[in-house]
Design a binder for these strands. Sequence first.
DNA 1: GAAATGATTTTTATCAATAAAAAACATTTG
DNA 2: CAAATGTTTTTTATTGATAAAAATCATTTC
Lengths: 297, 297
Amino acid sequence: MTKANTRFKESFNQCLGIIDDLAIGAELPGEVALADALKVSRTTVRNILTSLNDLGIIDWQGRAKVILRHSKKDEFFSDQETSPISERIEGKFLKWILHGDIAPDAPLNELELARQFNVGTSSVREFLINFSRFGLIDKKQNQRWVLRGFTKEYALELSDVREMFELHAVRSFVDLPDDHAAWKQLDKLESQHLKLLDQIDTQYSRFSELDARFHATLNRVSNNRFVDEFQDIISLIFHYHYQWNKKDEKERNEAAILEHLAYIKALRSRNWEAIKSNAIKHLGTAKNTLLRSLNQN
Amino acid sequence: MTKANTRFKESFNQCLGIIDDLAIGAELPGEVALADALKVSRTTVRNILTSLNDLGIIDWQGRAKVILRHSKKDEFFSDQETSPISERIEGKFLKWILHGDIAPDAPLNELELARQFNVGTSSVREFLINFSRFGLIDKKQNQRWVLRGFTKEYALELSDVREMFELHAVRSFVDLPDDHAAWKQLDKLESQHLKLLDQIDTQYSRFSELDARFHATLNRVSNNRFVDEFQDIISLIFHYHYQWNKKDEKERNEAAILEHLAYIKALRSRNWEAIKSNAIKHLGTAKNTLLRSLNQN
DNA sequence: GAAATGATTTTTATCAATAAAAAACATTTG
DNA sequence: CAAATGTTTTTTATTGATAAAAATCATTTC
């Protein structure tokens, strides 16, 4: 086996979703439109159509693509099958280093990881190379990878740069023209925060994603690829942090929402001192949550 | 062919150097000491010793390694043979994108690059993945790499973060204890600057390396891996910039040395305003040089 | 018996092969 | 004749194989 068709499977699932939203007897859009909607090439769309046709879900003849029936539950591919290998490695690896009890400075073994994750060594290699930008692992020419580890130092260094970048970004809000896209995005974010706050008892775990978008929006005004890159690191670390550190989650998230709302108000005021103090306060809270989660394992 | 023994060849050359510094009839140090000196494993050292023995340069029997003669010129491996493939790709690729006339947003082709550089596709792939952290190329899942290009925007974004990081770093010089290692390093750097200034007419091209060390020293006090990482990017970009942009090199370097010297004085004064203004001035000069070099091609 | 060498095992660097997916080109259809 | 489909070509994602190099274990020597 050389390559699993995860792209096909994922898009196939999505396509079933589209079909289920349409009436039986209705027509599917053209191949180009579908490719656009699914964000894949026409080649893949055609493979999906062939498959749908074979399953008797649609009747495909030339440009006629008539829906014959809706999907059955077991026709969807499982989550495991639909994520590309690189993502699967990422998930497994992060779980392993953030959760497993691996000591800092432990050597990592490409071959062993490949076996453990059930993928080829090159895939592991490419993953590690790419992942090394996150500063959690390291290697020297011809030597093995070494786990630097998700340590207190890591959390502090990460938080320092985060504060530096975000303060730099929000400083420009002081003079941001009224018609800048960021204001509208902030309005939207604010209402989403309010909505979540309202349903906090049941929906609190949805904050993670909102948090990422909030900070991404702020930092984007810097218009700097290095800042964006760093935001990706933050986002990944917090993503997994939220995923595995469930202690007091509801309380933490509720508090964070309130901080975000105050922060947004300060930004609107265009008062630098107010902005600054809100930024520092909130980023400090985030830093502490991260640090506290370290002490637990 | 699966792997070229560049490590062996490079160390072999180094080893010949060591031998030539010793007298004929003298003994080479033990295997462990050699491995340490050459920064390779004992395995490689033993391969080198075998080869030296075969060539009749040493007589190797057990722990006796007697030097029989010095090296001949043609016994050294050529530079091309001694650099690992990853480095060769880096050089060729950077020359290609910084010098070649490739339009921004041009797609990059792994296979074509592999052919062009005469290496396997995986090596190109790994290089590109690693190189993508520099922000000059980009890719989306299943799509090709795209050259973002060494553009004006790139130079500006790079310079912005550079200023942010370096100002953050030098701010801590204000309160840096007298016994911090950085002061000694600064003293040493200062004298090296003075020496170079003295021989500026002939040695001006050696400034590049000094420049990298100077800024690395400043930024290192931040004690932050993300800052260090970024410093590597700066260093690489400037390295190649210096290598190919020779216009007014002597004058530029002389001016930069003077700025560095003033900068060092300001740091020693521990006067934040003085430090800040020197930092901003010098980084501004660097930014402008970079920008000007862009307009030329 | 610690330090050095000798021998063996493990791991990394690199290449080549191939199915999946994208991209490009050619043909048809309203 | 523009937009859609049909067909072919190119490129990427992933695997597996292997020599170079590192790491480990075993034996000797001073």
